[in-house]
Structures are given as C-alpha cells and as structure tokens.
Design a protein around this nucleic acid. Structure first.
Length: 553
RNA sequence: GCUUUCGUAGCUUAAUGGAUAAAGCAACUCCCUUCUAAGGAGAAGAGUGCAGGUUCGAGUCCUGCCGAGAGCGCCA
C-alpha cells in the first residue's frame, strides 16, 4: 500500500526522533527538540527539517556537519543537505504511484463537534452570517475527511430578549394579516422599528425584557407566536442552506438549554462559584475586570448562561473531545469568558475547545452591517445576483443549465470567503464577487472541465508512465501532498484553497504548452493520467470547501 | 480610558521563526484554422507602518510610537 503524505511525514519524524536519541542523546520530549518537518517551497525537496540548525547551537558544531551526519542515518530516504537544512525527496516512482492509488487516512478516536452559522431566527440569513456558515462548513467537511467522528451543530438564536422585543412589536404594531402574508419582510420591519424607537424611549426598552420574561414563564399566547415564527424561520433557513449545500446534524436552539440554564445557576450559586448581587443578578467572577453575568436582575437567563449550558451538554451528554466554535470576532471576549466560567464549573472535562473568530463583513461605505438598523444584504439576494451574472456569461457560451449556473454562483460566493484567512475583515464588494477570472473557484471549475473533456471516453493505463518535463514533476510533487495540506487546513481552509489554485496553475501551464492528445502514445497516456489525478484532486479539494464541480461550462 | 486584533506591490490577498517575500485584479506586450482563451507566455510592480531589541536567521517573537478596526454586565 502507498504511504500517503501524512504517514510519510510521521515516518520521517519518528526516524529523526530515533536518530536524535540514539546518536545525540537528545531528549526529544523537549518541545524545541521535537523535529519539525515542513513541506518546503519548490526545489527544496518534498520534506524538510531544520533540526540540524537547532542542534548546532546546543552542540556548538557546524549545522551542515550535523545535517550530513543525520543524513547518513536516514536510510531509505533520498536526502540532500543545504544551508543546514536536511531536504528529503520522495522518489519519482512513489510520486507516480500516487497517481492511481490513494493513501488511507487512519480512523481517529476523537469525537468532534463543529458549531457554526448559528443565526438568529425570525430574521433572514444575511451576509454577516455568511463567513461563519461557509468557513465552519468547510472545517466540518475537512474533519470528516480526516476521519474524525464529526458532527456539526447550528446553535440557533431562538431565545432571549430579542424575542421579547419582537413579540412586543408584533402585539403593539403588527398587522396579523400582513405578517401572515409576508413574514420575513414584516417581522424585520417591526424589529427595526423597535430598535429605532427604543433609542430615545427607556420605557420601551424595558418592554422587551418584560415580554421575554413572560415568554420564559410560558405565557401561552406569546409561546404560540414564538413557536410559529420559529418553525417558519427554520424552514426558511433550511431552504437557503439547501442552496448552499449545507446540512446540519444537530440544530438545537438556545431555548433547548433554558431548563438546564436554570439548574446551572443554582449549581453555581450552591458551590459558591457564582454570587448573587443585591439587585438579584447572578455573576461568576472569572478573574477579569468585568465578571460574567449569568442571570439578569429580573431572574431571566442570558446568552452566556445558555452558552454554558450548551457547552456542558456537549461535553457531558455527547462525550466530545474536540469542540470547535466558528463565530464572529465581536463575540471573542464573551465566548472566552464563557469557556473560562464553564471550565471553572468543571463542566468541560477533558474536551479541547478551539475558538475560531472570523472577521467582520462591512459594506463598502465602511458601515457595519446591522439587522437592527436594517442595513443588511441577505444571502438570498447575493445568490440571485451572482446567478444572474453567471447566467449572462453562460448564455454567451451557449449553456443554460440551471444546476451548472447554481454551482458556479454558489461556488464563487464560497470561494471568495474561503480563499483568505477567516480572521480578515471583508468589505462586501460586488465587483470582486462578480469577477470570475484569476484566483477564483471559476478558475478551478474551468480547469476541472478542461481535464474532464480531455479524458472523456479515453482509457489510460497505469503502467509505463514517463514524466521528464520539469513542470510535470512539480505537479506530481504537489499532488502528492494533498493529504498533508488537508491536515494543515483543518482550522484554516484558505490553505486548501491556495493549494488548489497552485495545482490548477501548474496544470494549465502544461495544458497550454503541450498538446496532450497529439503526443506519442506513452507520453500521451502519462499526461492523461496526470490530468485525471489533477481533475480528481480539484474535485475532492473543492468538495472539502463545499463547492461542486461542473462537467461543462 | 482599559483590553484586543490588524498594518505586506496601486487594489484584494498568501507566506508553519528558515532558503530569491508568493499569487490574483488593474495597467503594458504577445498567443485562438491547435485537446474549452472563464486560459497561457512575458515584462513591470513591495523588502513587509516607523524606531529599537531577541535570534545563526524576523513579514512572523518582544518593547515603544503612529494609523485603522473591534470588545468593554442585565443584547446575542
């Protein structure tokens, strides 16, 4: 069986550890002496380690001498030494074998939850929700590919004072017929009106809280309205998620944690981790300047309480090992404090918690998006607009296939987000979004289509493959590292996006330079195998980004 | 004010403390009677906000300054 690039990396690492121990008597448990294996830039081999440079100081010896010595013990590997680095080259026949075999990724024992998207219900999904939704989904797909036991979770905002506000607005100003007719528009209007009017009306501010308290206490009329809006809203969300090709295994709303939140407050008070203020509010002192509020003075819970309950539920009831949150950076402080409090309460057990904070989406006039102020662009609007542009281009090319157009449009939206690091702020810009040239998903899909039409109806053989051109070797090397890249892209899908662009650029260079179908039989067959692998790699990589390929465009 | 994140070609971004800082867009010159030109080739374009420091080695780590964004109990 072919060792895939992850296994190979492990093997090199283990071998180096053995050499360090046996030849240099180095304690490889010391972090700085754990050999670091990197995939270097082209022309420096397939794997590289700087361990000789690190040892040079400790041993007071020339790094090249050390490197040469380590190299002599690295049996079975093709190595070169340069500038103190040990560069390891994967033999060409392994690279070639990689064209038609697939390394198996070992099954991991850890259970993983990825929480992302988590929009508020009764409001449309808008571009502010998009980064978390798309990046989170890619992380989820990547963990699954790496063979972790993975589920995703949509922590719906279906509870809290915001609902008190909405229900008050519906009762006082709403026209039930109008609402029935067009829920999304009317509810949004009411929500915006409430926020506008509460700015200079303190009494109104309290109304939201009062209504939430009534909802929390089970006022049947309010509960019914809330229930209606919620189930309608979930249907709406699912319609959009379907277009985006996103499916959630778990979709617990915040309301799901209401009962356990109450218990947590009691538990925290009893164990003196939390204390009650004079006004009736309950706080946990996490050692920061401002303690974490977990109960309001009117006795109701907050998002923080329900977040603690959710984390507890995941750690205890679901027995999870790795819990990933993909959320907006504006919640950074709140979530970190919440995790701290949950840990203080002893609910997190051994779970590793990774917090991924994505940047803001701003409008071009630098204004921050805000549902409350009503300046939002909905995801549906964006999809429609990009589809329109896609279609106008496709018509010129004589194609009018709805699913092709949808895949290209959705892909363009996703890739635009995924190609850069999630922490970057984004200025929402139609021009960039509608530009389908260069570093885009369209470029990747186009490359895929080229490969597809080249290999259509042609059977290529797995033997007598010859690759002598430099470009071919570069591409072979790049293709070999697919699994390695996925491993690196676990919490940072932009690494995968970047990699796929590299693959496509290398391939297109070859495609343009050589006329593959007109080559002699062996060369032609070899290049077709390379084409096939490129095609499969792009397809698989795009899938991990949540983007579909198309067969023609 | 306190806390925090970020300043890389004209623009959008990449770069695990490591090897000549890498792409795309825009502008320039070429390449479709040739496997899909949403493509390719070429030339041009930054020494990474500024000043120090640590290191064999700094865009990356530390300190200060300048600039921008964000967060700072009863919203989520």
């Amino acid at each position: 069986m072919l060792k895939d690039s992850i296994l190979m990396k492990e093997e090199i690492k283990n071998k180096l550890i053995y050499i360090l121990k046996s030849q240099y008597n180095i304690d490889t448990l010391v972090p700085s002496f754990i050999p670091k294996i990197t995939v270097p830039a082209q022309s420096h081999g397939d794997y590289s380690t700087n361990i000789a440079l690190i040892l040079a100081k400790k041993l007071n010896e020339n790094p090249n001498t050390i490197a040469e010595n380590i190299k002599s013990y690295l049996e079975g590997f093709e190595c070169t030494v340069k500038d103190g680095f040990i560069n390891i080259w994967i033999p060409k026949d392994t690279l070639i074998k990689n064209l038609f075999t697939k390394g198996i990724i070992e099954k991991k024992n850890e259970k993983v939850i990825v929480e992302y998207s988590s929009p508020n219900v009764a409001k449309p999904l808008h571009i502010g929700n998009l980064v978390s939704t798309i990046v989170g989904d890619s992380i989820y797909r990547i963990y699954k590919y790496l063979n972790y036991d993975t589920v995703n979770e949509n922590h719906l905002g279906d509870w809290g004072t915001q609902f008190g506000k909405l229900l008050y607005a519906v009762e006082s100003w709403g026209d039930s017929k109008k609402i029935e007719k067009n829920k999304s528009e009317e509810l949004l209007k009411l929500y915006i009106r409430f926020h506008k009017e509460e700015e200079d009306d303190n009494e109104l501010k309290d109304k939201g809280k009062v209504y939430f308290k009534r909802l929390q206490e089970g006022d049947p009329k309010l509960v019914k309205l809330w229930d209606d809006y919620k189930s309608w809203s979930i249907k709406e969300l699912e319609r959009i998620y379907k277009i985006l090709d996103i499916k959630f295994v778990n979709q617990h709303g915040e309301s799901f944690y209401e009962a356990s939140s109450k218990k947590i407050i009691k538990d925290a008070l009893k164990r003196k981790i939390a204390k009650r203020d004079k006004d009736g509010s309950v706080v946990i002192d996490t050692g920061e300047k401002v303690p974490l509020l977990i109960q309001k003075s009117d006795g109701t819970t907050l998002y923080s309480t329900r977040d603690i309950a959710a984390l507890k539920y995941r750690c205890e009831n679901m027995g999870k090992d790795i819990i990933i949150y993909e959320i907006g950076v504006e919640q950074k402080h709140a979530i970190e404090q919440m995790v701290k409090a949950t840990t203080m309460l002893g609910y997190t057990k051994e779970a590793k918690i990774y917090l991924i904070f994505n940047g803001f989406v701003k409008l071009q006039n630098k204004e921050k998006l805000s549902t409350r102020k009503g300046n939002i662009i909905t995801v549906e609007e964006v999809i429609k607009e990009v589809e329109k542009e896609t279609q106008s281009i496709m018509v010129k090319r004589g194609i009018n296939d709805k699913s092709v157009i949808e895949n290209i449009a959705v892909g363009a939206i996703k890739f635009n987000i995924l190609k850069k690091h999630y922490s970057k702020d984004t200025e929402f810009n139609w021009k960039t979004l509608l530009d389908f040239n260069g570093n885009t998903s369209v470029y990747l899909q186009y490359t895929y289509v080229r490969c597809k039409s080249l290999t259509r109806g042609i059977t290529s053989k797995e033997d007598n493959l010859i690759f002598n051109e430099q470009e071919e070797i570069l591409l072979l090397r790049k293709l070999y590292h697919f699994n390695n890249i996925i491993e690196d892209a676990k919490l940072s899908p932009n690494i995968l996006a970047e990699y796929l662009l590299d693959i496509a650029r290398l391939y297109n260079g070859i495609y343009q330079k050589y006329n593959i179908l007109k080559e002699k039989e062996e060369v032609k067959n070899s290049r077709l195998m390379l084409t096939k692998k490129t095609m499969d790699t792009i397809k698989e990589g795009l899938e991990l980004l949540g983007i579909k390929t198309v067969d023609k465009m």
